[in-house]
């Protein structure tokens, strides 16, 4: 299937959960927020949520900030 992660096209094998995607990206689930097709996921759902062809995934985290740059 084809999914878009943070604006980048990616090829991935099904089934793929959000937790598995994060593991592939070497990201720790407790440090990120995940939005799929504009819906924000609860962290508890990372393990069970399956991604589908065409999904637009955004993975966000905290960065240094205090003022807009």
């Amino acid at each position: 299937m084809k999914i878009v992660v943070n604006g980048e096209q990616r090829e991935a094998d099904e089934p793929l959960t959000v937790a598995q995607l994060l593991a592939t990206l070497q990201l720790r689930s407790e440090q990120v927020a995940v939005e799929i097709n504009l819906k924000i996921l609860d962290r508890e759902d990372f393990l069970t949520w399956n991604l589908h062809d065409g999904d637009k995934v955004e993975v966000l985290s905290f960065i240094g900030g205090g003022c807009p740059t």
């Binding site: 992660v5 943070n6 900030g65």
Partner: peptide, 13 residues
């Protein structure tokens, strides 16, 4: 401490 929320850099692991 204040922080901002931004896309994770997925190309640089």
């Amino acid at each position: 401490v204040t922080v901002s929320v931004r896309r994770v850099n997925i190309t640089d692991n």
